[in-house]
Each structure stands twice: as C-alpha cells, then as structure tokens.
Design a protein around this nucleic acid. Structure first.
Lengths: 207, 207
DNA sequence: CTTGACAGCTAATTACAATTAGCCTATAAT
DNA sequence: ATTATAGGCTAATTGTAATTAGCTGTCAAG
C-alpha cells in the first residue's frame, strides 16, 4: 500500500551500502517486492528516487532543527538552557547524540549514503558538511560559551572546545559504521573521552 | 611510455572523484591519451586496475610504516624519540600531518577513493580504518604516554588524548576535502586546536 | 633483414540495465 | 453497474559500457 515510501526506504538502504551507481532499479524493486517497471508508476526515474530521498531528509532535518530552537520565535538557545550541564550531563548528551546517529534507521543510512556520494556533487558536499560538521560545531560552541559564562568551564576558545568535543564523537561513529563489531569497545572509549574532556576543562580542577 | 603507471594515476583521480562505478574505462583511457581497448594491453579488466591501485597504495603504506619504525630491528619508538616535543613541536607535527594528507597527490586521492568505496567491501573498510584511524591513534597514544612519563604532560589516559588530538585534525581534513575554498579558515582552527590542546594538557599550568 | 612482442587502433560483440509500451485487475467514485 | 484510476505485470526497446577480435606499425634482438 504505502509503496511509494517503501521504495524510498529500500533505495536508501541499498544506496547507503553500495552507492547510487552500483544499485540497479531491479534490486530496489525486488527489495520492495515488485518488478522494476512498476517503480515507474511512483517515480519517473532512478535519479528521481535519489532526489526524493534527499528531499525527505532535508525536511526531516529542518523539522529537527526547528524543534531544537523551539522557544517559539526565539532562534537561539539562551544561557539558561545550559545552566545545569554537568559532567554527567555532557556524557548523556554526547552518548545520546552518538547512539542516535549510530542506531537510528534513517540517520545511519542517510549518513552513509552522503558519505559515499559527497564528492560527486558540490550540493551534496555542502549538505553533508552542514549537517555533520558545521551545525553540530556551531551548536556546541554556543553551549560551551554559555558554560564559560556560567563559570562552569575554563575560559578557552569555545569553537576549539566544540571541535575537540565533537570530532572524537564523530570519528568513533564512523569507525562503528565501518566495523560494527567494535561498537562495544568504541563506546567505552567514547565515554572516557567525554569524561576526560569534562574533567580537563572544568573550572574546579579535579585533576 | 610509462603507460601502465599513467593509467593507475588517471584512474585514481577519476575513482576518487566519481567512485568506481561512475567511471568508464573510456574516461580513463582518454585521460591517458589512448583508446579504451588499449587499456587491456596493460590490465585485464577495470576491476584489475582498481586492484592495482589498492596494491600500490598498500605497498606505499607499508614502506612508510617501515620508515617510521626505523631503528633497524626495533619495532616501536622509544622514550627519547619524543623527549623534546614541545607545544611548537606538536603544532609542527599536527600541521605537517594535515598538510601532507591534504596536499600530497596520492594521499588525497587515495583517501577520497577509500572514503567513497569503504562500505562496498569489508576489506576496504578495514584498510580505511587501519590507515586513517587505528594506526595514527596507536602512534599518537604511544607518543602521549611517553610525554607523560617524561613529565611534560598531565597524567591522563593516552588513548583518549590521542583521539582528542587526532580526531579534530582528521575532521578538518575531511572538511577541506569537501570544501577546498575553506582551507584557510580551517587551517587557522587547526592550529588553535593544537595550541589549546597542548596548553590544556601541559603540566606547567599556563592557563 | 626479418621476426616477434609490444602497444596502439577500429570495429565488433556481449551484456546488461534503464526505461517505455501496452495489457490486466481491483477498487472506489459516479 | 460503469468507469476511471492506481498500481501491478510481461515483453520490448534503447543506450551504453566493458570487453574481445583482429589489424598495424615500431623497434630491438638475432
């Protein structure tokens, strides 16, 4: 019934594993349980399927972004948002981000697909960069600058703190993408990273 | 004359930009200045060209690794190797790594190619992980553990330090791959990262 | 000087994958 | 009840890309 959606789903799975060019429309159709020509009742071409995936992902992303900056008309988080962030808070936040990116069905497949297609088209490169680098970094830089103002953290460049906090999370994520059997080991390292980060930057020097 | 090599070179360029499946043997041939069928005098198939690139890269990599562990039969660096590493030393090392990966002809293309093909084959995934994650991390963890012993750095988990040092470098590298016009801006951030890292972890607390 | 292998070419051949044509059935609206 | 539409199918069609066949010129070794 909801064939149109199931096509996108199957296509995303296949594209993320093999890349656009290595996937045949027949495979997508088979995964959905129909024959290749029937796909064309729903999308006018293979490229059109790819574009539909992108569009859906963009709108999900926008929705999520809108949800984050939620306070009605206020575009950015204010100091109070982060007032109560502790070491455990940072751990929760980082692990949550990580687990979401790693296990959420759409998030993981979409990330892999973009990884694999990013150099073919500047638009994709930009989308990728925005979604997995610039936006998270900006958000976290904001967070850290708040935490400094609140006297929780040492006064250091928040942009640098953001990349030192986030880049390891992202790297561990890509390592899990490549070698899922190492998830347990890498998750441990992730938590150690966040705790050490928090300890090192926290103002009460408990080193 | 050295057509065989020039084929690899052209193929690597194209594969890294478009991915294996999007490159036609005719394009490779054209880049070399011959016709497609002539390729088959040198390689027995398109797949064979891909494999030859991998083989060459593996051997380059092994050579480089061998050069690093140079002391004749001694497999790992000893404490003295890192005795004199200062903040500026760390900066030089990190920026050097970065610039090499970013601008070296082979290094950059090979990295992009692997990025784009990594999920298609577990062997490629493993190769990628080893080359761009596990090996650098192991090397740097070793370095940091030495620097701790020497009393230069605070005593913190060296594996964590390694990922906090290296992951930002790698992330900035991939950002430059995607959006080369941002190189200047990102290079600044890179240097700030390393200096801040060094300051934060150095034992004489100059915060 | 002639022979063979090397490296190139043009012209098939083969294979296969995307898409189109045209037919069929069920179901929902008129 | 009739009909239009949605969504499926099989059987073309089209296009293209990898590879093979088979010819040619060059040049080094005998």
């Amino acid at each position: 019934m909801n064939t149109k959606q199931r096509i996108l789903d199957a296509a995303l799975t296949l594209f993320s594993q093999n890349g656009y060019a290595n996937v045949y429309v027949g495979q997508i159709a088979e995964a959905v349980g129909i024959k290749a020509p029937s796909l064309y009742k729903h999308y006018k071409s293979k490229q059109d399927i790819f574009q539909a995936i992108l569009d859906e992902m963009k709108s999900r992303y926008d929705a999520q972004a809108a949800a984050l900056n939620m306070n009605g008309n206020n575009a950015v988080a204010d100091a109070n948002t982060f007032a109560a962030v502790s070491e455990d808070g940072l751990v929760r936040m980082g692990m949550g981000l990580f687990m979401y990116f790693l296990h959420d069905d759409y998030a993981q497949r979409f990330r892999k697909m973009l990884t694999v297609e990013q150099f073919r088209d500047p638009d994709l490169a930009q989308l990728f960069g925005r979604q997995y680098a610039d936006e998270p970094l900006a958000y976290q830089a904001l967070m850290f600058s708040m935490l400094e103002k609140n006297g929780v953290l040492k006064e250091q460049d928040p942009n640098v703190m953001a990349i030192q906090y986030y880049a390891p999370i992202y790297m561990l994520l890509t390592m899990c993408d490549r070698e899922p059997h190492r998830e347990a080991e890498l998750t441990v390292l992730l938590e150690q990273h966040i705790r050490q980060f928090s300890r090192i930057y926290s103002k009460e020097d408990n080193v």
